[in-house]
Nucleic acid binder design. Structure first.
Lengths: 230, 230
DNA sequence: GATAAAAGTGTAAATTTAACACTTTAAAGG
DNA sequence: CCTTTAAAGTGTTAAATTTACACTTTTATC
């Protein structure tokens, strides 16, 4: 009986790298850690680690992210598997990139202090190791495509947020200015926001009304396959 | 010096599976092969094989496809990496799925004869091994998204084709009927087709004019970031 | 009480999308 | 050769969506 001989096949190291996008009043950022081991010790890197034999990629991504940043309960999505021959100088390693969107303010403290992780503005990135810049590029492209086709505020904003904040989020993802009135009417047309009787007085003198997502309506819309075109 | 010990990390088998979409007068199909080895010998399977240490995933996909079908010069795109623990019953194996679009007529002969590969209509698929049905599902979803956002006729049609053919291609990808007049005017608005002075008399009594893609204009449009909404 | 800085608000024109039916052509069959 | 048949080809109108655009309100600060 011809059993395919799995033993003859090569095994490889499989790494994971997490691209964590965050948003705060300054704009869109990503989370990097300072490597404390060779190669490239001391350089900034995506949050990465190796897959263990007995876990799925999704599980590994969660584990790696948690171990290096303390972050928990983050929904990550698989992006792409990178396989250039010499991408890791030590040994042949492939890496599966994952990405996630989070609100910086509601996770901040733990991170920056305990771990050597730090948020970087997309405009002021340090050099990244290996092929991490390519990973980031692909992640940004995906994020933009997503932002143009479905609302993504959910993950990146705090529970309560203002319209100007939501607009700034979109502007910083898409890297273009949007018209205030058109933006608002498009968002309102979706009917997935609830306007609160509260204002945020932090940013402007006049203050801006706070909103929150109506999760139920949002999920219903998702099922109906709605689209959000910006 | 703390060199991360790569030796302590697990290595895994990394497979590839190719989802080859084809199109002919009968509609959209995929290419499957009959496995001639255990496990699951005799069952139908996507075109798959293992990554070798010294090649990239793209290279491996090309090699595997060529070895099992004789197909050459096929542009494949990476889809997703599947990692369920028991997806392969023999040994822990992850698999990177690739997909491609080809015109059945211009590749047919070699395939079906020399290799035990066969085209299957999407509507009449046999049971697939492992998690290949999930791979296919994801590939179809991607193909539909692509079809709605950019013209994809290029790869799936012969060099010369008719409007009804192009429309049938779209209808079979999207699995919905489209309005003939609206479809044609949308396609024409792109200005990437050249109408030839020839008719195809095979299909209908009246005959249908043949067209071909204007590759230059197409690529220019791609650069401009045009969109094709159906 | 004047000033400054951001929030908030509506309309009209232009463009795009969707719905819809009859005529033309040539092969096939009587 | 006349009739039938089956698919190709062709435009218009109404509806919906998208875009462009400017002034008023509010409140903190000086």
């Amino acid at each position: 009986m011809a059993l395919n001989d799995y033993n003859k096949e090569d095994k490889v190291l499989l790494a994971l790298d997490c691209i964590i996008f965050g948003f705060d009043h300054e704009g869109l950022k990503i989370l990097l850690i300072k490597r404390d081991f060779e190669p490239e010790r001391g350089k900034w890197s995506l949050i990465g680690g190796f897959l263990k034999e007995e876990e799925t990629l999704d599980q590994a991504a969660i584990r790696v992210l948690h171990r290096l940043t303390g972050l928990d309960n983050i929904f990550m999505e698989q992006l792409y598997t990178f396989s250039k021959i010499d991408r890791d100088p030590v040994e042949r390693t492939l890496s599966v990139a994952y990405y996630a969107l989070i609100d910086i303010a509601s996770h901040d403290e733990k991170l920056i202090q305990k771990f050597s992780a730090k948020w970087f503005s997309l405009k002021e990135l340090p050099n990244l190791i290996f092929d991490h810049d390519q990973m980031l590029e692909k992640a940004i492209a995906r994020l933009r495509r997503r932002a143009r086709s479905k609302p993504i505020g959910f993950e990146l904003l705090p529970e309560k947020f203002t319209m100007p904040q939501l607009q700034k989020l979109y502007e910083s993802i898409l890297d273009e200015k949007l018209d205030k009135r058109n933006f608002i009417s498009r968002v309102n047309a979706l009917k997935i926001l609830i306007k609160l009787d509260q204002k945020d007085m932090q940013v402007s003198k006049k203050g801006a009304y706070l909103y929150r997502f109506d999760e139920k309506k949002y999920h219903q819309k998702v099922l109906e396959g709605f689209s959000f075109k910006i």
